[in-house]
Structure formats: structure tokens, C-alpha cells
Design a protein around this nucleic acid. Structure first.
Length: 139
RNA sequence: CUAGUUACCCGAACUAUCGCUGCAAACAUUUUUGUUUGAAGAGGAAAGUCUGGACAGUAUAGAGCAUCCCACCGGUGAAUAGCCGGCUCCGAAAGGAAGAGACAGUGCCACAGAAAAUGACUACCGAUAGCAAUAUUGGAAAAGGUGAAAAUGUAGGGUAAGAGCCUACAAUAGCGGUUAGUAAUAGCCACUAUGGGUAAACCUUGGGAACUGUAAUGCCACGUAUAGAAGCGCUUGAGAGCUGCUCGUUCAAUGCUUCAGGGUAGGCAGCCACAGGUGCAGCGUAAGUUGUAUCGUAGAUAAAUGAUAGUGUUGAAACAGAAUCCGGCUUAUGAGGUAACUAGUUUU
């Protein structure tokens, strides 16, 4: 059974506080301005369809009002949701999960189109990384 | 018509495509979940956290000081610092976000000015010295100029010169009586007093407040370490129990503190239906309240309510995003609209 293509449900989100701390502590990262990407491959305990776990974040120092933070998080989520397909199909076969966290580090608001373009680059880079690196087990 | 005052309203809409959150129903499925359909899904301030409550915990017992809040009167309400009505004061008026005390005490009052609170610079008067100019000393707040503010104002008496020193009229304050009012207060009469402002300086007086907040709290599941080191203590009491301190009181031994190290941070309840909204009627000056009819309106947890395109408005709409829930206050804010009122102008 194939799920709908452009979804972003609860299961696909990076939700566990423990996992999140691990991502920040152990992950590798790269920067595609204005998005900094933290990622951590995880060996899945059981074979599962939920191969990707994604979270987004904005510093409250850069954006004091929650309205602005909400908007940027929505922009990034939307950009990921519309363009995640190559990454998803790449992960489909393997027995590992990938935890990803997108952090917005710019200090100004940008257009949705700009975020879309940058996210495309991020996805390309992630896809090539997945092809190279093997999974590291959880300690 | 112009200028202004007050109160209130609205906080865009529609279509298509791709999505998100919980809820209900149906179907599938081994728990678990999946699919489809349906009807919902941020605000007037959701904000500030300034207040009043509800709810929960802290104990079975509290007291004093400290701290914080409030401050004309009556009403309203669960309660309040809110609201309504009144009083005084302020403003030319509509109106107002002003309201205990400066005869308890301490402090402060820029610049200017002699002096900013036991006021003597100029000018005034007396005494002494001197031919005189003048000097010394005392009296005196009436005149001058400064200032936001200069010792209540005017007139007369009085005096060396002056002064509420005395008198008349007036002003302000206090106290007493009386009339009106539930009261604040107001009017009138009599007496007394007249050395400023600042309490958003400390402070004093009166009244009030136990503290902590839903990451509260209760339950279930999972998991480790009843391991190690140092110190203190075991009824002559380490330590703990409700905040800063003191006292009181209660509990207290496989105990307490520190160091080092380890584990968990998943779920359920709390968690959305009530001091609820709207209409009508009665009562009340009003805030409100009573009765009745009707409506059902977010509940997430790295945290939903979005994106794109088009139509479109005077604008591709300002301030802005629920996190336990209500009542208020304050602050931010786009384009407009409504009602009442004040002042001025023009016309009749």
C-alpha cells in the first residue's frame, strides 16, 4: 500500500525529546543558507515505513514574536513536504531511519519561493549523503 | 460645514488544488493502525502578567515583625484596584486616567533670587560714634526686583519705622450647632486660627493579603543502585514540616547533607458546558438582576488552523498566534462606520 505522496503526518515528525537531544549531541550538519541541517542516521529496530523523522526550529532570539516564528516553521515544513519525494524513495529500501532537524538561522523573513529553492538543494545533498554513509547504531 | 469630547461596532469574502489537528460514523484489521465520508478548528486584544476569583497542592496550629496591595460616599457582583450612580476638585464647554494625612517626624525644592523656611540685598526707622560722607548695632516682611512658588487680600487705625498688632469686609482651614441627604457632602449661624510646595521622597494612619501555580496535582507503565566516598546524628535530637526573620507547635532514625555516578522524561486524567453567548419580557436612574426561549463554539504537546493560483475590496489589510479556565485593567493596531454631546461659522 502506497501512502499519499505529499503528506507530513505526526508519524513523520521528530517528536521524541530524547531522540531530539541525541540529534543535537551526535549529529553531523551542513549549511544551505538560511537553513542549517542536522541529520543522524539510526538503525531501525524493526522494518518500518517511517524512515524519515523531521523537525523544524527557529531561534526566539532572532524572532521575538511567535507569529513570525510560526510562519517560518510553516514555510520550511511546506517546502519539505512538497519536495521530499526523492529522499523518501531513496530511503525506502534500507533498514535505517534518518532523523533530520532544520534550523532557520537567518535574522530576517524571506519569501516562500526562496525557502522552496533552498530546500531543494538541501534534499539533493541529503540524498547523496544517504547513498554514501552506512547506519550508525544507537548507543 | 469646521474643530473637538465620549461611547460603541467591524477586525474581509469566495473558488480550485495540495496539506495539518483532534472528534464522530462506516469499512478493513491480531493488539495497533489504515482508508473513506462528515461536521469543526486562534483574538479583539489570544499580548503585558497588572489585578480579582475558580481549581489543586503544601499540615494536623498558629502568633509577632518584615513585605506587598488599597485609600471620598453609596450600590453592583463569585470577587476586585473593575463597573454604575453621587460628592468634592480640575477644565471655557462637551468632559476628566484627580481623591486619607504635609499641626507626628526626617528629607528635598533645578535656574534665577538677598533669602526656598526660624527669610534682611536695596530702600525704611531707632540707638551709638562722627562736622559730614559713613561705620557699628538693633528694629522691621509695608515697598522693590527674581521665581512655578516669597508668609492670606483690601481699607482704616496704630507706630520711631512697621507688622493680624488692632478693627471692618473678604478668602482659606478647623471645630461646634442647625437644616437637607442612607452617606460623602452642601447651605446657614457662632467661635478659633492664618510661616509655601512635595506623600509618583521616606514615612504616618486606617483597611486587606498564608504561600506556590496546570511543567499544579492524581493514576498507570517502564527502569536503576537496598551499590560507592566524606561529614553529622540516633531521645542530652542530625534534620524536616508553608514564604524573609523570630517564637511557638508537630514529626523524626535501614535517618539527613554533600560529592561522584546511574536511571526516567511514555501514556491517561486534569482538558474544555458554563459566574457561557444571543433574543424577548419584568424590576432598577444605571452597573446589573430575575424569568423565559434559543444556540453549542479550538484543545495541541518540538506543539494543528497552512501554502499556491485566481476572483476581488479604497487596500493583493494593521497589531498580532490559544497552552488550566473565567471577570476586569493596561498596552499595540488598518480602512472605515454608528450614536450622543460641546464650541464656532453660515443660512432661515
Amino acid at each position: 500500500m502506497m501512502p499519499a505522496q505529499f503528506t507530513l503526518r505526526k508519524k513523520e515528525k521528530l517528536k521524541s525529546r530524547k531522540l531530539l537531544q541525541q540529534v543535537f549531541a551526535n549529529s553531523k550538519s551542513f549549511l544551505v543558507f538560511p537553513i542549517k541541517v542536522f541529520y543522524l542516521p539510526i538503525a531501525a529496530t524493526e522494518p518500518t515505513n517511517d524512515t524519515l523523522k523531521v523537525g523544524v526550529g527557529v531561534s526566539s532570539k532572532h524572532f521575538k514574536r511567535s507569529v513570525d516564528r510560526n510562519r517560518i516553521k510553516r514555510q520550511m515544513r511546506e517546502a519539505y513536504r512538497l519536495q521530499k519525494l526523492p529522499l523518501h524513495s531513496c530511503m525506502q529500501g534500507s533498514a535505517q531511519q534518518l532523523a533530520i532537524f532544520f534550523l532557520y538561522i537567518h535574522k530576517e523573513k524571506v519569501s516562500t519561493l526562496f525557502v522552496l529553492q533552498k530546500m531543494e538543494l538541501v534534499i539533493q545533498k541529503l540524498t547523496s549523503i544517504v547513498h554514501e554513509t552506512p547506519a550508525t547504531p544507537i548507543d
